[in-house]
């Protein structure tokens, strides 16, 4: 794996940090999936397994995108996981107890996300408070508010919502033949479409718009960004606002997938989002990162989880230990590659 990357760097002359880390991520993901297909077979040979990974992680993809944007701008947002739980609960209560419609639930989700983004962004950008502390408070607030809104888990009965939840989009020409010889087409849920659109829009935004380039500049070096005439405070504010908005979208997509409200929803999602961003080559120090990498980061993380459970190591602790080992290996590889590259240049 390392040899491939080294060869590439030599042939293509110096790559930017962002592209180098992205290449590592994508290569590792495909290598891992291929290895799983070859050595484990079974589920991994079915196309639907891949789409199930997407179905289950659509919300995480959106949350991780928001996390990557904040991290590229040099901040961090650890409130997104509990915020997702709050949005699920609020939307569920709105649908079932207050007679809301699907549209009102969507608006409510986006409004909650946006409100968190605006308040946290304002505190971070205009009052110069450390993002970790602000979003930590946001996390506590969302955690407490979830139980204040409603303290027990319940499934949503609203018909329009359940219909939307069960909508499947079939992929043309892809699918597998089941045991009885019937062709079963592969499908994705609506959330996956939302996630893919989000990834594409954000990729374009980060690469070709003024805001996107400002985010990299501010994260890389705020002082020089300031000298270039970029409004550092406004950019930081917008990064948190975007993350909040994406948490709103991601929260609703999560809600659409699980169809219930519970205080325990999306536990640890913020850490998964951070881990996915890291695996995707985003650096906490800011200025380096890529949305496509984040997308593959989420896929890698869930693929390794699937591999572990298919290997029969189903004891709860093995998943966590393997995921941790994987983050560890990724980090060390990234660090070694970057160190060697910096030494060479």
């Amino acid at each position: 794996m390392k040899a491939v990357v080294d060869k590439k760097t030599r042939r293509l002359a110096p790559m930017s940090d962002t592209n180098l880390l992205l290449t590592i991520t994508i290569v590792v993901f495909f290598a891992m999936y291929l290895a799983a297909m070859l050595f484990i077979g079974r589920g991994f040979l079915r196309v639907q397994t891949f789409f199930n990974i997407l179905n289950e992680n659509a919300a995480l993809i959106i949350l991780s995108c928001g996390m990557s944007i904040v991290m590229i701008a040099g901040g961090i947002d650890i409130s997104v996981g509990k915020l997702t739980a709050l949005i699920c609960m609020s939307a569920a209560v709105n649908l079932d107890y207050q007679g809301g419609s699907v549209m009102s639930a969507i608006f409510l989700s986006l409004a909650i996300g946006l409100a968190f983004g605006i308040v946290q962004g304002a505190l971070v950008a205009f009052l110069d408070i450390q993002p970790f502390i602000v979003t930590l408070a946001g996390m506590f607030f969302a955690k407490g508010m979830t139980t204040i809104v409603n303290s027990t888990q319940f499934n949503v009965q609203n018909e329009a919502f359940v219909a939307l939840k069960n909508t499947r989009i079939y992929i043309p020409f892809l699918g597998s033949v089941n045991r009885r010889g019937v062709f079963v087409p592969a499908y994705v849920e609506i959330g996956v479409v939302v996630a893919i659109v989000t990834v594409i829009v954000l990729f374009i935004m980060l690469r070709w718009t003024k805001l996107g380039r400002s985010l990299y500049a501010v994260g890389g070096n705020p002082q020089s960004a300031n000298m270039l005439g970029i409004n550092v405070k406004k950019t930081r504010f917008l990064s948190h606002l975007l993350c909040g908005l994406l948490a709103g979208i991601g929260g609703f997509v999560y809600f659409l997938h699980v169809g219930s409200g519970a205080p325990s929803h999306a536990t640890g999602a913020e850490m998964n989002a951070i881990a996915s961003s890291i695996i995707g080559g985003t650096m906490l120090t800011g200025g380096v990162g890529n949305i496509i990498g984040t997308f593959f980061g989420v896929l890698s993380l869930s693929t390794i989880k699937n591999i572990v459970s298919l290997l029969g190591l189903d004891d709860a602790w093995w998943t966590n230990i393997t995921v941790a080992a994987m983050i560890c290996i990724f980090l060390v590889v990234q660090s070694v590659v970057l160190l060697r590259k910096n030494k060479r240049s």
Binding site: A316, A325, V336
Partner: peptide
């Protein structure tokens, strides 16, 4: 991890954060 591999502390300790309780069990 932090000192010799130059990994950001929050990320380096994320490893033990993920695995710690499983190791304890």
């Amino acid at each position: 991890l932090v000192a010799y591999f130059n990994i950001q502390p929050m990320i380096a300790t994320l490893i033990l954060y993920t695995a710690g309780r499983s190791i304890a069990a």
